[in-house]
């Protein structure tokens, strides 16, 4: 899929986003503190093909949610470009052209309790994008569209009259998905859509997302910290660490032939539900502060394979086995690709 003709649906190139978290100017001057910049996203390149599910995984603070918000335009990028179906999102264009682009990409949020306006009825919540993009001309048509959307997410038209607080977390997430689908988008950015849900409800939502993808030919950018979920839903996976992409690979390859030491460490943390006796080897250390990231390869302080070069030089992305990996040890051949297998649960 990624090498299908070169025309990528979504392309992020050299994307950076820095946040200024300094104290106010006066405080800084009085206390003699320097400016503080968080490099939330520090130069990432991603290409997403039409119809695939590209997942970004990483621990909190790695910048994966910031990428999601950059893509849908909630933040302007500090540097780099976002191309959507051949259109540079930063390019100058008229309001209506911009709206036409926005209509084609929507977002599903993490917290089903915060992502729906508590004062609005579900009908109005779902109707809002239809109204905003002027997709419906008369009331009857709007009514029909909203009812169809409610049915598509396995709710009933009668649910439209209720308020969000009358629903459970899973049902709210369905409303959230219905709203995202309302403008008939082609590309959905999903920011941890199931991490606030119980596992049985998570399964319902993941199944729903797979069904909808197949029915409407959707492309997903899926953000998650849960590797099992990512394994289940993704076509390709990108692993982020401290604002950088350390490895990208087709899902099966990433899980069975992980290359970057951080990817291996993350895979080690997946609980062993099958109880094969596989030992989880907890990795020492914690994610450093993004305010003051380590030099060179940002993973070097926790990496068992780091040498002097890793401390100084930032590794470049190297193409390997249908993916990329940014690691000196792999590039120099110091570190062999690891084979992993997983027992199928009965």
């Amino acid at each position: 899929m990624p090498d299908g003709g070169g025309a990528q649906f979504v392309r992020l190139a050299g994307l950076k986003r820095y946040f200024d978290v300094s104290a106010p100017w006066l405080v800084r001057k009085i206390e003699g503190r320097p400016r503080q910049i968080v490099q939330a996203v520090d130069g990432i390149d991603i290409e997403i093909a039409k119809g695939e599910t590209f997942s970004l995984v990483g621990e909190s603070g790695c910048g994966k949610s910031t990428v999601a918000r950059l893509v849908v335009g909630l933040y302007p990028p500090t540097a780099g470009t976002i191309e959507f179906d051949g259109n540079d999102m930063a390019g100058r264009r008229s309001r209506s052209d911009m709206a036409a682009l926005r209509r084609r990409m929507q977002m599903i949020f993490q917290d089903p309790y915060a992502s729906l306006n508590p004062r609005w009825r579900v009908f109005d919540i779902i109707a809002e994008p239809i109204r905003a993009f002027g997709l419906s001309t008369d009331k009857a048509d709007l009514q029909k569209r909203v009812e169809d959307l409610l049915r598509q997410v396995k709710l009933t038209p009668a649910d439209g009259r209720k308020y969000p607080h009358e629903f459970s977390g899973g049902q709210r997430q369905r409303v959230s998905i219905a709203r995202a689908l309302a403008s008939q988008p082609e590309f959905l950015v999903c920011d941890e859509p199931t991490s606030a849900l119980d596992v049985s409800v998570q399964a319902q939502i993941l199944n729903l997302m797979v069904d909808l993808q197949r029915r409407f030919g959707l492309t997903y950018l899926f953000i998650s910290h849960n590797l099992a979920v990512v394994y289940h839903i993704s076509t390709r996976v990108g692993v982020m660490y401290l604002g950088r992409l350390v490895e990208v690979a087709p899902t099966e390859t990433l899980f069975t032939r992980p290359k970057h030491p951080y990817t291996r460490m993350l895979l080690d943390t997946i609980p062993d539900l099958d109880m094969t006796g596989r030992q989880r080897s907890p990795v020492a250390g914690e994610v450093p502060s993004p305010l003051n990231p380590p030099s060179g390869c940002t993973f070097h302080p926790r990496c068992p394979f780091a040498n002097d070069r890793c401390k100084i030089e930032r590794p470049k992305a190297l193409s390997i086995e249908g993916g990329t990996v940014a690691c000196h040890a792999i590039a120099e051949g110091r570190l062999a690709v690891e084979e992993r297998s997983y027992a199928a649960n009965s």
Binding site: R69, V72, G73, L74, M98, A99, R102, Q106, M107, F109, Q110, D111, A114, S115, L116, N117, E128, P129, A132, F133, S176, R179, S183
Partner: peptide
């Protein structure tokens, strides 16, 4: 900063509309 306001921004509503409606 709540997600429902961000959802409205993703739709492209103007700040005035977001303030008054949401």
């Amino acid at each position: 900063n709540k997600e429902y306001v961000q959802a409205a921004r993703v739709i492209g509503l103007s700040p005035l509309l977001i303030m008054v409606r949401h």
